[in-house]
Every structure is written in structure tokens, then in C-alpha cells.
């Protein structure tokens, strides 16, 4: 084994990789119409690499679906289109046009915006194309209610999750059976931690959106969150001013709802080193989680959020 692989030994990446590939292959073998939810973030990038490996030398046998709220960072959209082109992927981009026409604004409409532009949009898109299996990049270490979700999450015809009545999941024997109208959300990265994801990105040299790397960026400090001014839709509140700060993002989403963190990590190994020392769980940088108190994520998941 060469030095590069040795360095990642402690993460047990081979085991995680094999488990995830096993899950992806099972669901594609048994599931009717699979799709991969592609959020453009680091977890999606890892999942994409795993799917390539799972089916090699065949191409990935399902399309990618991106729910575009039109408020993503511009660099994310550019990255998405370029990766899809370079890898020759079938990419479906879906936007909730009704919400767009109503002019929902993440700066003003908070929870309603998230519900309509993300949760509802996702449900509509899955229904429109009739997908029965949707792969997502969620990990159990992200958040309390995710810690309890199975690898395969059964959703009813309204896409809602019933945490009280989850299917038992035994060994590596996944029950992929569904009744008409039901669908499965599948999380191949369930057992990965944030450290594992970055270690894998380093080991495999996977390209990720540049926003993950520290750089001088224009930001506004709003309620303690460093919000990057990504376009002119962001209006400054009285007393706010735009500052240049060297920041990077731990998670990516809609720019008005994603706080950056001050950092010096400009390369993958530096990010990994920073994550190793990191002391806050990553979702705290997403403002949407704070809307409805401690159990907001569980509530959103029950309603059909990924």
C-alpha cells in the first residue's frame, strides 16, 4: 500500500465505500425508477463518485435531480452545469414555478420559503417523473433526528416520514418493497461522518465547489451569521455593512440561509485538518434549522424534506 492510502487508514474509508456501493447496487437492482438527489455539495460529490464506482464500467444508470430554488450560490450552479457536461450525466433541474411566481424570498419568508421552494418542490419533482427510489447524501452524524433514520426511509404517497413506524433494517438485507404511491429515500452515506467525507474527497481527489475553500469574500454579519452577498437581491438592513472576510462554507445551500465561517483552510488537506479540530456540528451553520426550535429537522422530515 502506498503512502497516500496509508494516511487515510484510520478512517476505514474502504469499508465505508464498500458498504455504500453495496447499498446503491441493491437499490438499483431491486428498485423500479431510481434517481439521485444532487445538491451540488460535498456529500453529493462523494455520492456521485460512489455511483460511478458501483456501476463501472457501465455509466450511472439513473439521472440526477437538482431542486433549484434560484437562490443557490452562483458558483454552485456553474459547478453543477460543468460537472454534468464533463461527466455526460443526465441532469434534471426542477424549480417550483408557482413559488417563483409568488416571489417567495428567503430573506423575508423564512420557513414558508423553505417549505415551498425545497420540500414541496422536491415532492412535486419526484411525483412528476414517477421516481420510486431517491438517493440522498444525508449522514446520521449531521443532526439528532437523522441519527435515528434508517438507510432506507419509506415515504407514503405524501412523501411523509413516520419515525415511529420505521421498517426494521437487518444486517445488509434491505427491504426495497413498496406499494403503489410509496417511495423510498435512500441514504448510502448514513454511516459516514463529516471527517470521513473530507478524508475521502482528499484521497480520491474529488472536485468540489470552490466555496468550500477559504477566500476573501464580501459578507454581512446578520444575527451572528456571516452571509455572503452573492448578488444584488440581498438588501442591507439599517446599520449593516459589507465587509471583506476570509471565509469558507461548511455546508452549501441557498446563499441567504447559509452562514460562512472564518477560516484559513485553502486546500483539501487544510480543510481536513480543520474538520478534525472542528467543534461545532455542521448544521448549526444552516440558518433554516433554527426556525422551529430543537425539533425543526424532525418536523420537516416528517413533512417530506430530505
Amino acid at each position: 500500500m502506498d503512502d497516500i492510502n496509508m494516511a487515510y487508514d484510520k478512517y476505514d474509508l474502504d469499508r465505508l465505500e464498500a458498504e455504500s456501493i453495496h447499498i446503491i447496487r441493491e437499490l438499483v437492482s431491486e428498485g423500479e425508477k431510481p434517481v439521485m438527489l444532487y445538491s451540488i455539495g460535498k456529500d453529493s460529490s462523494v455520492m456521485l463518485r460512489l455511483a460511478e464506482k458501483a456501476f463501472y464500467p457501465e455509466p450511472i444508470p439513473f439521472p440526477l435531480l437538482h431542486i433549484d430554488t434560484t437562490w443557490k450560490f452562483r458558483e454552485m450552479t456553474e459547478f453543477r452545469d460543468r460537472i454534468a457536461r464533463e461527466k455526460n450525466l443526465e441532469l434534471i433541474v426542477y424549480t417550483n414555478m408557482e413559488g417563483l411566481e409568488r416571489g417567495l424570498d428567503p430573506f423575508k419568508d423564512g420557513a414558508v420559503y423553505t417549505d415551498v421552494m425545497k420540500t414541496e418542490a422536491l415532492k412535486d419533482a419526484l411525483d412528476k417523473y414517477g421516481f420510486t427510489v431517491a438517493f440522498g447524501g444525508a449522514r446520521r452524524d449531521e443532526e439528532k433526528s437523522r441519527a435515528k433514520e434508517r438507510v432506507i426511509s419509506l415515504r407514503n404517497e405524501h412523501h411523509t416520514w413516520e419515525p415511529r413506524n420505521q421498517r426494521p433494517e437487518l444486517w445488509d438485507l434491505y427491504n426495497t418493497g413498496i406499494s403503489p404511491g410509496e417511495s423510498l429515500r435512500v441514504f448510502p452515506l448514513s454511516n459516514w461522518t463529516e471527517r470521513d467525507v473530507w478524508a475521502y474527497i482528499c484521497r480520491e481527489n474529488i472536485e468540489v465547489v470552490p466555496l468550500y475553500f477559504a477566500k476573501e469574500r464580501p459578507v454581512v454579519n446578520r444575527n451572528g451569521n456571516l452571509i455572503m452577498v452573492d448578488d444584488d437581491r440581498m438588501e442591507l438592513l439599517p446599520g449593516e455593512k459589507i465587509e471583506m472576510k476570509k471565509i469558507r462554507f461548511r455546508t452549501l445551500g441557498c446563499y441567504p440561509l447559509t452562514g460562512g465561517m472564518e477560516s484559513e483552510a485553502e486546500t483539501l488537506p487544510e480543510i481536513l485538518e480543520e474538520v478534525e479540530k472542528e467543534i461545532r456540528s455542521e448544521r448549526t451553520s444552516r440558518i433554516i434549522d433554527e426556525d422551529a426550535g430543537v425539533f425543526s429537522m424532525e418536523k420537516r422530515k416528517r413533512e417530506g424534506y430530505f
Partner: peptide, 21 residues
């Protein structure tokens, strides 16, 4: 005890996975 209804009941009723090193 991550899920709200479990908290209300005061018992852990499902499996919760924790990752630490």
C-alpha cells in the same frame, strides 16, 4: 433521545446512531 415523541414518553424507543472517535 433525539425524537420529540420519545422525549415526551421519556424513553428511547428507536435506534440512535452516534459517531465518535
Amino acid at each position: 433521545d433525539g425524537l420529540s415523541f420519545e422525549r415526551e414518553q421519556g424513553i428511547t424507543i428507536d435506534v440512535a446512531y452516534r459517531y465518535f472517535a
